[in-house]
Design a protein around this nucleic acid. Sequence first.
DNA 1: ATCTTTTTTTGACAAAGGTTAGAAAAGGAA
DNA 2: TTCCTTTTCTAACCTTTGTCAAAAAAAGAT
Lengths: 187, 187
Amino acid sequence: MEIEQILDQIYLLPETSKLILQNCVTEINYPKGHILLKADKIESNIYFIRKGIARAYSNRDDNEVTFWFGKEGDTVLSMKSYVAHQKGYEDIELLEACELYELKSEKLQKLFEEDIHIANWGRKFAEKELVITEERLISRQFRTATERYAELLNDYPHLIQRVQLGHIASYLGISQVSLSRIRADIK
Amino acid sequence: MEIEQILDQIYLLPETSKLILQNCVTEINYPKGHILLKADKIESNIYFIRKGIARAYSNRDDNEVTFWFGKEGDTVLSMKSYVAHQKGYEDIELLEACELYELKSEKLQKLFEEDIHIANWGRKFAEKELVITEERLISRQFRTATERYAELLNDYPHLIQRVQLGHIASYLGISQVSLSRIRADIK
DNA sequence: ATCTTTTTTTGACAAAGGTTAGAAAAGGAA
DNA sequence: TTCCTTTTCTAACCTTTGTCAAAAAAAGAT
């Protein structure tokens, strides 16, 4: 997916502002398994996925929890670094070789102060992510693991083929063994 | 809590912008039990809590899930109405008689287009809410019900005294019976 | 205070999901 | 292909949490 299309789907910018933003972006590729962003660092870049998929996971005790998947067109960032210039809570791993657009967070923050359209673009980005996250939190409470799996299949039909089940189980908040049982029951 | 303080804690605005925003706000009071925002409506106001507490809940099948509590200084809105001008997924109920500041969403949207500082104020609001929501989603996956209860006690020590346990159980994602058992065990 | 209603707790049992460990299947490398 | 590694599935058993029902406690109303 091209950068213009990615920016447009968040919020339609006037041509001049869009060009300013596009000119700050550089392309970069990384192999499968690359850790794009690290939990214990204040990260200074954000990315847009041109091609490929990624996941965000958080580590505590010995457990690792995957709580986000990103695909073509999605924005990748360390939320706490971006919002509060603090160390994040997530690592982000590329699950396939990825083509990415890179943008310096500092540069973007400066544009927020200078260009009202870009500020509103940033506002819309956060707002949309917020609705998605809030809906997931609610879904977690309403639905059984089986229903949540069906929902994921419906929302991201492609993902299942490309991501290993351990990560999907973690995303759904269940053990891999449970997911395996759910899949066996459905057939 | 006064309106100026509430606006400041989201993002520090220059005096002129703050005054513009403050002048759009009117005060209004409602009794305990009042439904401030309704799930099946496109709501046109947002509120700030001057005094009192509220909860957001979503209804599906026969289940009701409380997924948010608001207290003095918090912002109350129908997320989907605010972000996408669509019907929301939540009712918001006042758990005590509340003093509120009311702001027309339409008016705010217009200010976002006119004043870059207010646009950035709106951006910061969404970003902060996003981090809080994402952290809750992760916590849900990492922690046992007992740990999440302890966490809530720690984060909102006042709330427990003022909100009935059925709502708290729902917020934690467990049944009221389970919460009751957890409380019995802790002592 | 007394009665009524609502909220919280407790007990018994059922269901969902977790853990461990090993088997089967799939994927890579030589 | 064959061997080795990783991923997925299955089975047995255990823990947590849910449901239903009833008792106890707390809050409101008269």
